[in-house]
């Protein structure tokens, strides 16, 4: 228990470092996809430190400043409720998947307040798009989770991780406990939704630098932008960790970190080769095929458990 509290205190720092590293390596991989050399893998750390070391910043009001802080706090509290593989359950015995689904939105909503006070229409449009995108992907995603709950008879993420536990060793591979193999359709749906959650192409309407000048970030600079970059890193960690915990069985540290990374890289590679949807198209897309697939996944689950 005490060890767990220590882990919980360390978790945000680890998550930030991991998330920034993922983005850094991701930039390198995208560069290679585009036949460029690409920045060094530690570039994202440098960028973040540089942003935090800016000497001046401008603020449009109290909530403009509080927005990124609220976002950061929201992300940190969320990641405490997502187990770090099977190595450390953190606080996930004190809150389940429904809590996590709602904790995840604290960060964007907190940020939305700040963005709104920024009095720039680009930011507001970005937020409107972001919330619409959330409306789009949450519905198939919750159905994918629903089939997991049907299969495991629990909403607690820690117990879902436990239910997939096998003997983990370097020699033996026990991936066949994974829910990905038990519920393949739901896993696919969840991965499609992950693309929207991470805001990667074709679902990067929120940022859309060429249309709305990086949307929510338009008025933010310096330390605020630094906090937002950290928040983005945390966000990547949270979403991928959630996916790995639920569908890839969590696993020990040596599996968990590469697994989260590869989930991120998968969506990044899709990002690398696709253009952007219009926001309405994104909604239509998510409420089309993935939704039908999710329903099929649930029916499949019902058949399997019988």
């Amino acid at each position: 228990m005490n060890i767990n509290i220590l882990y919980a205190a360390l978790a945000p720092i680890v998550a930030i470092l991991l998330g920034l590293l993922y983005i850094g390596i991701g930039r390198k991989i995208i560069a290679r996809l585009q036949r460029r050399y690409g920045p060094p893998f530690y570039q994202q750390y440098i960028d973040t430190i540089k942003l935090l070391a800016k000497k001046t910043v401008s603020s449009h009001g109290v909530f403009f400043s509080l927005g990124p802080i609220m976002g950061l706090a929201g992300s940190m509290v969320t990641l405490l409720f997502i187990p770090f593989g099977s190595a450390a359950p953190l606080l996930s015995f004190h809150g389940d998947i429904i809590l996590v689904m709602y904790l995840v939105v604290i960060a964007p909503l907190g940020m939305a307040l700040g963005v709104g006070e920024g009095s720039n229409p680009n930011g507001s449009i970005g937020m409107a798009r972001g919330l619409t995108l959330m409306l789009a992907y949450e519905v198939p995603f919750v159905l994918a989770l629903f089939s997991v709950v049907l299969y495991t008879h629990t909403t607690s993420i820690a117990q879902i991780v436990q239910s997939q536990a096998g003997e983990w060793s370097l020699l033996k591979f026990h991936g066949f406990n994974w829910l990905t193999f038990a519920l393949p359709i739901s896993a696919i749906v969840a991965d499609i939704c992950l693309q929207g959650m991470l805001g990667e192409k074709p679902f990067d309407q929120v940022i859309a630098p060429h249309e709305i000048a990086s949307g929510p970030m338009v008025e933010y600079g310096g330390k605020y932008l630094g906090m937002m970059v950290i928040n983005h890193a945390l966000h990547i960690y949270i979403e991928t960790a959630l996916f790995v915990d639920i569908f890839l069985g969590g696993g020990p540290v040596w599996f968990f970190i590469p697994a989260t990374f590869s989930v991120f890289i998968l969506s990044l590679i899709i990002n690398g080769v696709l253009p952007r949807f219009r926001i309405g198209q994104a909604l239509k897309f998510y409420w089309g095929v993935p939704l039908i697939l999710a329903v099929i996944g649930i029916i499949y689950t019902m058949v399997v458990i019988k």
């Binding site: 939305a112 307040l113 709104g116 919330l131 949450e138 919750v142 629903f146 089939s147 999710a294 329903v295």
Partner: peptide, 27 residues
């Protein structure tokens, strides 16, 4: 599950109009 999907869509749509309410009046 179908009810869950509809209710969840409704409660996500609640984020949208809640943000609109506070944004259009105050922000």
């Amino acid at each position: 599950f179908l009810l869950t999907a509809v209710v969840f869509a409704a409660s996500t749509a609640a984020f949208l109009y809640a943000y609109r309410l506070i944004h259009n009046i105050f922000l």
